[in-house]
């Protein structure tokens, strides 16, 4: 395969990665890392660097399309970023202390569990009419959005901010340590623990993963993990795909998004378990 074939084929795969990544709020890395390592035989460290780039591309590409739709709860996202960026910063320096295999196995189990939980309550969003969460009330993290699939305005209240913050800190830590899996914890945290609607959760996760990835991008760059010939087609393809995915998100039902999310989560958790148990 010549460099041109490589760039063109990777760009096309990246478009698909961007569409899927923006719909489920996990970023393009979910597709990019296995494709690069298994199909193209690229070193895992360079694949993770490309994953960071693809996550930022998903985030910014999707955001440009969401802006007028109020799908992203930016207040909640920004509030939770306090925990995520702190986690990402500490994770980048803990990387040498914790055994990677243990982390992969541990998060494989965590994600398998959260995919089961998400699947069991796939039928509807568990929205709250009133919230007694003092933090959520103080920062007014509640919101509303217009659901195109249901054809109505949906108002929701946020609760469980403390549990949310803890989960987000762990999500930031994992993102910095393993380069993947940050959105996989963020979406269940918002959808499950904090009672945000599923589509708001994936859209807000899309916003957050970009900021979290930016917090560890500097470290990846200095370590020489961002290879331009891989990053270029990934960034361009994912940006295009994410813009498209974000445009169609409104028209898809929450149930479909949740099932899609569960499918992707199962694949990631199997991947992580494999890396942890049979490297």
């Amino acid at each position: 395969m010549t460099p041109l074939d490589f760039v063109v084929s990777l760009a096309l795969i990246s478009v698909a990665a961007g569409v899927l990544g923006s719909l489920v709020g996990l970023g393009g890395g979910v597709v990019i890392v296995p494709v690069l390592t298994i199909f193209y035989g690229v070193n895992i460290r360079l694949a993770i660097g490309a994953s960071i780039v693809s996550v930022i591309a998903t985030s910014s590409g999707a955001a440009a399309a969401y802006v007028r739709e109020r799908m992203t709860n930016l207040r909640a996202g920004m509030f939770l970023e306090v925990a995520t960026t702190t986690g990402a910063l500490s994770g980048a320096y803990l990387a040498t202390l914790l055994p990677e295999r243990f982390l992969f196995a541990f998060f494989g189990v965590v994600l398998a569990y959260s995919s089961v939980i998400t699947y069991r309550k796939r039928h509807e969003d568990q929205l709250l009419a009133v919230s007694n969460d003092r933090i959520a009330n103080y920062f007014n993290l509640h919101g509303s959005y217009y659901d195109e699939a249901e054809g109505r305005e949906i108002t929701y209240k946020v609760s469980g901010t403390k549990l949310g913050l803890v989960l987000m800190y762990i999500a930031g830590l994992v993102s910095a340590l393993l380069g993947i899996g940050s959105g996989a914890l963020k979406v269940p945290a918002m959808d499950g623990a904090m009672h945000l609607p599923m589509k708001v959760s994936t859209a807000t996760s899309n916003f957050m993963i970009g900021v979290t990835a930016a917090a560890s991008a500097g470290v990846y760059f200095i370590r020489g993990q961002i290879d331009p010939i891989i990053a270029a087609p990934v960034a361009a393809g994912v940006l295009l795909g994410a813009t498209f995915g974000a445009r169609v998100l409104g028209r898809i039902t929450s149930r479909t998004i949740r099932l899609l999310f569960v499918g992707v989560l199962v694949v990631i958790s199997l991947e992580m378990l494999q890396k942890g148990l049979f490297p």
């Binding site: 395969m1 010549t2 460099p3 074939d5 490589f6 760039v7 193209y40 035989g41 690229v42 070193n43 460290r45 360079l46 290879d227 010939i229 891989i230």
Partner: peptide, 8 residues
């Protein structure tokens, strides 16, 4: 080959 470009 792209491999020479993506090698470490």
């Amino acid at each position: 080959s792209y491999k020479t470009l993506t090698s470490r």
